[in-house]
Simulated scan of single mutants.
Amino acid sequence: MTRDSRKSSTIHEIARRAGVSIASVSRALNGKPGIGEALRERILKISRELEYRPSAAARALISGKAAVVGISLGRQEIELRPYYILLYQHLTLALHQHGRVPMFFAHDQFETLSEQAGSAILLGESPDDTRARILTEKSIPWVRVGSAGEGFSLAPDDRYGIELATRYLIDKGRRRLVFLGSELELPYCRHRLAGYQQVMQDAGLAERSISLPFTIESALDAYRELARHLKRYGLDFDGLVCETDELALGAVAALEDHGIVVPDQVAVTGFDDLPALAGSLTTVRQDIALLAREAVALLVEALAGEPPRHMMIPVELVPRETG
């Protein structure tokens, strides 16, 4: 028996036990009008007893775009970055568990989102980001994965995570720490940098940073920039606090290619603890699966008309070989 035939059999069994038509079962399961609340509750109770779970695809066919959640990227160049790939996978899983249908929208596809989706999760903010405003004007509920602001939002505790990493290296005796990040000259890119700056100020140590372009080849960018720095200035630091695991990997490779021993001469920390990348990195772990589940939970609140709020996802330091 195929999966579809099993589902069909279960629906027929629900209808038989409730003494109603298949149409009434469909109305109850999908929140449609046309039946009384007592009957709806009885049908839902029977469906739970039979462990019936309608597929997300089926919900999309029944409910149209109301069941579709648009996952929207704000910048084209981040689509292939490992962090966003992993986050998208976890969002897809969490949405399916809520009976929702995820649909991916690249940066240049956002204008079509309102035509195909009933709600949205926004990734990759920028200063001139107009997506939230557009969705609000069109009365489409949304959640932003990013800094606190208007509407529903959530983010890992970025600043605290970098504070943990910076303080950890100082406690290990490092005094010449450099922060390595992307587009640090832009205000909205400085939330992790701020954590490094605060700890360095508290410790009475000089702050230094290296800013890189924001591209999908961040590890290679870090390698090249650090190689240029070493050639020009020599080894003038004993620790690197990196904004992401990708930057940390590029930095470690550049140091090793210049004969610099990690962590004996230079300690390196990352951020994210991405399974495919972190390996031996001392890094700050954020629970991406939890972030995805909470993003979907906030979206449910947004759909229900609850007051907007911001949620901070906790992080933790994971000491490994590079620190």
Rank of each mutant, 00 (worst) to 15 (best):
L277C: 13
T282H: 08
L290P: 01
A302Y: 04
P319Y: 07
L303E: 15
Q286I: 01
D287L: 06
A295G: 02
M311N: 07
R320W: 14
A292C: 08
L277I: 13
R320A: 15
R320D: 14
G305V: 07
L291E: 01
V300M: 13
M312C: 05
P307F: 09
S280Q: 14
A289Q: 14
V300H: 09
L317F: 01
R309K: 15
E294M: 05
E316Q: 13
A276N: 05
L290D: 13
E316W: 00
A302S: 12
V300Y: 05
L299F: 02
L299H: 03
Q286Y: 01
Q286W: 00
P314N: 04
L303H: 01
V296F: 02
I288A: 04
E301R: 11
A278T: 15
P319G: 06
A276L: 13
L277E: 04
A304R: 11
V296Q: 03
R320M: 15
A304C: 09
T283K: 06
G279Y: 08
E301A: 08
L298Y: 05
L298S: 04
L291W: 00
H310S: 14
E301N: 09
T283H: 06
A289H: 12
L281K: 03
L317R: 04
V296H: 00
A289F: 06
Q286E: 11
L303I: 05
R293H: 12
A278H: 11
H310P: 10
E301L: 13
V318F: 09
L291T: 04
A297V: 07
E316H: 06
V300S: 12
I313A: 03
P307L: 10
A292W: 02
V315L: 07
E301K: 12
G305K: 04
A295K: 02
R309F: 11
V315G: 03
R320E: 14
V284A: 01
R309N: 11
P307S: 09
A289E: 15
E306K: 15
M312G: 05
A297S: 14
I313N: 00
T282Y: 12
A304S: 14
P319Q: 06
R320I: 14
E321S: 15
P314I: 01
V296T: 07
A292K: 02
P308H: 03
T283L: 10
A292D: 03
E321A: 15
I313C: 01
A276G: 02
I313D: 00
L291Q: 04
P314V: 05
L290I: 08
R293L: 09
S280F: 11
P307C: 09
L299E: 06
R309G: 11
R309W: 10
A297E: 11
G279M: 12
A276Y: 01
E321C: 10
G305L: 05
L290A: 12
A278N: 12
A292I: 02
Q286H: 04
T283A: 06
I288V: 14
A289V: 10
I288P: 00
R285E: 11
H310M: 11
A304N: 13
A276M: 12
P307N: 11
T283N: 05
I288M: 02
L317Y: 02
E301Q: 15
V318H: 07
R285F: 07
L291S: 00
L291N: 00
A297H: 10
V300C: 13
A278C: 15
G279F: 13
P307Q: 10
G305A: 08
L290E: 13
L303G: 07
T282K: 09
T283W: 06
V284L: 08
A276Q: 10
M311V: 14
L303Y: 00
H310K: 10
